[in-house]
Write a protein that binds this DNA or RNA. Structure first.
Length: 130
RNA sequence: UUAGCUAGCCAGACAGUCGCUGUGCAACAAUUUGUUUUGUUGCAGGGAGGAAAGUCCGGGCUCCGCAGGGCAAGGUGCCAGGUAACACCUGGGCGGUAUGCCAAUGGCAUAUUGACGGAAAGUGCAACAGAAAGAUACCGCUGUUCUUUGAGCAGUAAGGGUGAAAUGGUGCGGUAAGAGCGCACCGCGCGGCUGGUAACAGACGCGGCAAGGCAAACCCCGCCUGGAGCAAGACCAAAUAGGAACUCAUACUCAGCGCACUAGGCGAAGAGUCUUGGCUGCCCGCCAUUGGAGUUCGGGUAGGUUGCUUGAGGUGAUCGGUGACGAUCAUCCUAGAGGAAUGACUGUCCACGACAGAACCCGGCUUAUCGGCUAGCUUUCUUU
């Protein structure tokens, strides 16, 4: 199992400046969406993918929840980064992404995380198959 | 051992794998004349909170403004202390509430609570009820007039009734009936005295007592306050456009002049054209014009660096103080990101894990919060 190449997520794998985000927003080559996320992407001239995450205060007012969404997306991207190719990706959390009804059972937070992770993985699958 | 209150502490634990971000060390590579600097890899070690939150107060820090004073605006309001400062904290005073005790119309103790200056400067407000809410007679009581039941007039705030609130309270005297009308005690106001740093308290003397409440209604009085905030501010600075200085080169057309002459050559000056700028945005007109290339300089955008964590700092001891807190000594360094790190997965265990994520830094307040631990006090039951 431990023979995989290192799945890193360093500074060069992120969209760090507003201009890079604007580039993707203004002319995305592909769009996908699920219940909680919207995904825009555009080919870049590097030999690795780059990720940007947008989680607005509208999508969830608490900073803790926003951090949680970002971490899920980022970690999933890290696992898929070698398979994605030369592309800039922006993932936007939609407004209802955290509005799950609070269930009775105790580990409902874990459940939300699992659901978000499944959604983001289906997005990667769509992106690779297209 | 049961329940509660107050104060303080913790914020699932352990192991493994992968990942992110600072720090230290080492190696390698690039870079620099060089000290270095940058990158990669490895190892070690650090990496959210008690509220990080709300942004409600108070400061530090930064830039801008500022002779001094006043007005306005905002804040604040018993006294003293603590503090860098505060609306916070500590201690005290006074008032309210609750409980308990006692020698009981009261006093004392404990707990709790109060934006707690001014209502005889002015304005305003008070639903419903009630006669009347700021000036008043509904019932009643008393006197008197009229022809009697009754009505009018006058006096009266003791009684009834209404209300959150009705013009000091109780008793005795007094009176036509009443009323601080008079007296005693209590309350209130004034005066000096005593105690206290003061708020205030005490006893004494004087005054019959001023027409009630609300100032978190306006307001008056005292005191305080310059503005904006780390997206503050400082530094480096690509490309593009524009600015300034300097250097080199010196557009086109025209006719004439001088030199030279086989010449379409050379030189100086003039007129015009186009370019650019200014005169009002445009046109005309007028004025200026060296119009191409290069170098340097300054401002400055993207971007980068910094501010950025050693501080009114923590811990311990001793001393001072009723206490908040202070002084001295010793010791420790404990996140520093920035499209924003502190996470993911697996396993084991248990009480099955709440509220919630640093963003320049501190001191408070307020709000959210599953549980657990440790003291002190009160309390239930059991045992001796």
């Amino acid at each position: 199992m431990g023979k995989e190449p290192a799945l890193l997520f360093q500074r060069e794998s992120r969209l760090c400046t507003p201009s890079l985000y604007r580039r993707v927003f203004e002319s995305p080559s592909k769009r996908f969406q699920t219940r909680s996320f919207r995904l825009l992407c555009l080919e870049n001239e590097l030999n690795h993918p780059r990720l940007g995450v947008v989680v607005s205060k509208k999508s969830s007012p608490l900073a803790v929840r926003r951090n949680m969404v970002k971490r899920v997306v980022r970690d999933s991207f890290r696992r898929y980064s070698l398979r994605l190719g030369k592309i800039d990706v922006v993932v936007i959390a939609k407004e209802g992404s955290m509005k799950f009804s609070k269930p009775d059972f105790t580990d409902w937070k874990e459940d939300i995380k699992k659901q978000l992770r499944q959604e983001i993985e289906t997005l990667w699958q769509k992106l690779m198959s297209s």
